[in-house]
Amino acid sequence: MDHKHVEELFEWIDEAATAIEYQENSTYLEAVAGALDVLFHHAPFDDMADLLKQQLEKHLKDIELNKYEKEEIRKATQLAILKGMKGATQQQHLITPDTVAMFMGYLTQRLFPGEKELRIFDPACGTANLLTAVLNQLDKKVAAYGSDVDETLMKLALANANLQKSEIEFFHQDSLRPFLLEPVDFVLADLPVGYYPDDVQAKEFTLHAEEEHSYSHHLFIEQGLRYTKPGGFLMFIIPNFLFESDQAQQLNEFLREHAHIFGMLQLPESLFKEEKHAKSILILQKKGEGTKTPKEALLAKLPSFKNHTAMADILGQINQWFEKNHSS
């Protein structure tokens, strides 16, 4: 990957988005989605003002999209989205750190070493940064699906996938409602943390709270298991307090009945502004015929991703664990 390519593509997106934001009086984030669409179609849209069309047509002459690799496009797009999300306080407007997305791609490869085809679903896909980061690391035929309730994030996800030429089918809906989707081999998500406001829909889940609102992150785990094949895997970014909250006992009992805990990897605290926001990667296997809990789960506290020596050491240990417990 060429970092100069990432920088110049980001600058192109940023300039186009700034022009759209100013001319159409939209938010920068909405303008980024528009800029990505213009870049993909290599033409402004018919309903744009003449002055904006002229600016974008001139701007398009400065770009040759075919020279960029998928990862360069993903990273440049991510930088523009991050700029648009600065100061955004909504939990759903946060993006999975790049190092974490890449690490989850590596873990996905280890979970599915022999499969030639794979069906993947991210029920909280946001801008599809995590999903495309994982897809870009897989050397197999993949059918991918993503869902999010936020319209702006869905527009960004679609434009992001189009530019990377990633075939992903998106659902723009509340991800805790039913999907027209056959069960998949693998569910992954950076779980939205907080309360789910729809108490009526929450009652469709075993993990709904008896009093007050249910935790959306609990319901997402149950929803993920619903859409995973028996024996399939799930990988979630979870808050470190997941198994210590007031509804943790209910969650523990549910997981014991429906899944094997395959592993839990605590992410470096340096990634998070405050310790209370620290997260881990939880790996589950849905129970099925012939599945069993590993003799020892994959448990580790990850060092800083910048500490290459410590990281190489932990990757060696993780590889050994997979050879011993999951080499099929």
Rank of each mutant, 00 (worst) to 15 (best):
E30H: 02
Y22M: 08
F45S: 04
P123F: 03
L60P: 06
K83N: 14
A31V: 09
E30P: 00
L60Y: 05
K61G: 05
V100P: 14
Q91P: 07
A49F: 12
D37L: 12
P97H: 13
M85I: 10
F121M: 05
A19V: 05
L82Y: 04
A88G: 03
D37H: 06
L94F: 10
T77N: 15
A88P: 04
R74N: 13
I95S: 13
A128G: 09
M102P: 00
L36E: 08
G84F: 14
K67P: 01
D37F: 06
G105S: 12
Q78D: 14
A17C: 06
D122Y: 06
L94R: 14
T77S: 15
F103K: 10
Q23E: 13
L29I: 07
Q91S: 11
Y22T: 06
S26F: 08
T18L: 11
I13K: 08
A101I: 05
E24N: 12
H41Q: 11
E72N: 09
K61F: 02
M102G: 10
M102E: 13
L65Q: 05
L82D: 15
T99D: 09
F45I: 03
I20T: 10
L65V: 11
A80R: 13
K53A: 05
A43Q: 15
R119P: 00
K58Y: 01
M85F: 15
A88K: 15
Q92N: 14
V32T: 08
F40I: 01
D62W: 00
D62S: 12
P97S: 09
T96G: 09
A80E: 04
D37P: 00
Q109S: 13
K116I: 00
